[in-house]
């Protein structure tokens, strides 16, 4: 690497930009399809495949979180559980997927569990699930993104994906999050 002298400024010196550039949905869909096929060739079962997709999603989510918090909120964190969830449902979803998530719900019997429901997630739009893999939901990738975003914002949680009213992302928060949120509330 001899040409280092006149190199372009490194990423850290570049302005972060407004995040406007967009690519064609076909470009993304085909890339995602290749990713799913690649992962599928390296695993044996559907749950393994979903785990793999979720890991890749986490990689995306953890990077996305920084960019969006910086750009949208001037790096102010969300500290309340509910505002974090609403931030994800509206702001985050809108930027990343071009629309707000369809629904945000809390489980009736469990204060640790929340659901984000999306009738047709972007990543599933062009995927037809083969008959013998009926339970496969490639939105596991999105679930991974959500998990990384929540963990990165210090709301440790597990996010899983289910076929229910379209696709339902089940968010199970760590006990500590709920305990902490109560103290924040009572202040």
């Amino acid at each position: 690497m001899s040409s280092f002298g006149k190199q372009k400024p490194s990423n850290l010196e570049k302005p972060i930009g407004k995040g406007k550039p967009e690519v064609n949905i076909a470009t993304f869909a085909l890339l995602f399809s290749e990713i799913v096929q690649y992962c599928q060739n390296r695993v044996h079962t559907v749950p393994e495949l979903q785990t793999k997709l979720s890991e890749l999603g986490q990689h995306v989510g953890s990077h996305m979180l920084d960019v969006i918090f910086l750009r949208e909120k001037g790096f102010k964190r969300e500290i309340k559980l509910l505002s974090m969830l609403i931030f994800i449902k509206s702001t985050f979803w809108k930027i990343v997927f071009g629309k707000e998530a369809d629904k945000l719900e809390q489980a009736n019997d469990d204060d640790k569990t929340y659901y984000i429901i999306e009738k047709e997630p972007l990543v599933n739009k062009f995927i037809s699930v083969p008959k013998d893999k009926g339970s496969l939901n490639c939105a596991a990738f999105t679930a991974g993104m959500l998990e990384a975003v929540l963990n990165g914002a210090n709301f440790p949680a597990k996010v899983t994906v289910h076929w229910h009213k379209g696709t339902t992302f089940m968010i199970k928060f760590d006990e500590s999050v709920i305990t902490r949120d109560k103290t924040v509330d009572s202040r």
Partner: peptide
């Protein structure tokens, strides 16, 4: 919100996740 377009950063980072893998 053009349904034929996708957030460019989602695309960039997804590709990045693939290469890293």
């Amino acid at each position: 919100g053009d349904p034929r377009k996708v957030n460019g950063e989602l695309f960039t980072l997804t590709y990045g996740a693939l290469v890293a893998q």
